[in-house]
Simulated scan of single mutants.
Amino acid sequence: MKIWVDADACPVVIKDILFRAAERTKTKLTLVANQAISHPESEYINSIQVGRGFDLADNEIVRLMNQGDLIITSDIPLAAEALEKGGDALTPRGERFSLNSIQAKLTMRDFMDTLRGSGEHSGGPAPLNSTDRRTFANELDRWLAKNRKIN
């Protein structure tokens, strides 16, 4: 089991939680981004830099991941691909994507994209807060505990 991070937009505080968890549980963690990403020196943590381009990091994560791996992303299409490939997906706010909910999320994403394309300003997501960080850490711990029992 490995953890893959869509690292271009992942908040630093979430990466820090992931780094500590990878070390504590001896779980392989890979950051994938189109720029160099700094991370602690560790046998469990590495990074992959892809070229600049639309969805190159997402495509690399899907190409390299295996069934049962965890993907950290806010990107709904990436989460959908990870789920289709048998992986798990978690947002940096601690929301788990599931096969039951992903289609509704894709539909809403497309709807919001259409609104933005018509000039409607919907604003961005709220800043990450302490509740989000705690929710993320708790969901990550649940996933790690569940997968340690399986493996």
Rank of each mutant, 00 (worst) to 15 (best):
A126S: 14
Q67G: 11
S38I: 06
K105S: 09
S101D: 15
I102R: 05
E43Q: 15
V62C: 05
I72A: 08
S122D: 01
L29Q: 03
L128N: 07
L115W: 10
S118E: 09
E95R: 01
N34F: 06
L83H: 12
E81L: 13
E84R: 08
T73N: 04
N147S: 02
M112Y: 07
E95G: 04
D55R: 13
G117T: 02
P92S: 14
I37M: 11
A36S: 13
R93Q: 13
A145P: 06
N138S: 12
E84P: 02
D141H: 13
T30S: 11
T27N: 06
G53R: 10
Q49H: 07
T107S: 09
Y44V: 09
G53W: 14
N66S: 13
Y44E: 02
R93P: 04
T73K: 07
I61R: 00
G87R: 02
D58T: 03
R52N: 06
Q67S: 13
Q49F: 01
L29I: 11
L78H: 01
D58S: 12
T25F: 14
G124R: 09
N46K: 13
S47F: 10
A22N: 03
A126H: 10
E41C: 01
K105F: 03
G68E: 04
A22K: 04
P40R: 11
V50F: 12
A89G: 04
D58Q: 04
